[in-house]
Nucleic acid binder design. Sequence first.
DNA 1: AGCATACCTGAGTAAAACTGTCAATTATTT
DNA 2: AAATAATTGACAGTTTTACTCAGGTATGCT
Lengths: 145, 145
Amino acid sequence: MRMSTKAQYAVRAMVNLNLYSEGSPVSLRDISLRESISLTYLEQLFVKLRRGQIVKSVRGPGGGYLLARPAKEIQVDEIIDSVEESLVPVACMDQKHGCVCDDHCVTHNVWHGLGEKIRDFLASITLEELTQEARNKFNEAKGKN
Amino acid sequence: MRMSTKAQYAVRAMVNLNLYSEGSPVSLRDISLRESISLTYLEQLFVKLRRGQIVKSVRGPGGGYLLARPAKEIQVDEIIDSVEESLVPVACMDQKHGCVCDDHCVTHNVWHGLGEKIRDFLASITLEELTQEARNKFNEAKGKN
DNA sequence: AGCATACCTGAGTAAAACTGTCAATTATTT
DNA sequence: AAATAATTGACAGTTTTACTCAGGTATGCT
């Protein structure tokens, strides 16, 4: 039961973007350098984040990406949805025409309940909170030196 | 973020075992037929379930598997642990010598918290409860005919 | 004893998913 | 025009998953 690194990268990249953006676009090259994620892989992720209305792009020199809305309104589950990592723990429940479980599916409720817990938890955390945590961590580390 | 079919099969097989065992051993062949899971695959799973103290085996004709303890004392997370499906959502936190996250790991708390939610939920469900649910489902279906 | 049953074990394998890279293009600013 | 940076699609190596196969071992029954 692993969260794909794709989803992990996406969340990290979004925190980093918000951390270093102060109204102006942040280039993927910068995020790539700071987070040690391959530039070309980041490009793939941000295409999806843009389609998911999490970020918007600014082309040309000085360009990069901006948040599409305030960090307070971006939830972690939305970031993960955007990069197409499913939060539903079993495949049969992940279709729009519903689960075709017959009598064999005595475990349906377990996975359904689990999926809800996962969703609720990740929806309860905003990008704003994560960024603030990151700032605190950074200041603590600074204080030690 | 998918629960492996291995873990899904293990839970289903355990419910089925408990459903049809009344003190006497249940053969994997029977479970295989009822749940449409390959016999040889079930054998692999039950080796692990035995090592995890979830079931015990009885060899020879009329043999099969029995619960190692009362169904009330078997939690779903234990079944999943036994077949070696990790409930920790990120790899770096899944080692005994702890996570070597440095400053980059601003998302540590998210995944740690998520792992706890998953564990708590699955630990809150016992095999007894699942089996009772299955009995109810079966009786409802019967009532309709 | 001999046979059937059923657990036990390890090796192997095809397909899918994951984790990226590469090459080329388009849009914008200076 | 030249430089910057996003955008896109194809593709490839590696790992994991989900099994199968080919045996072996223990036990009970006739």
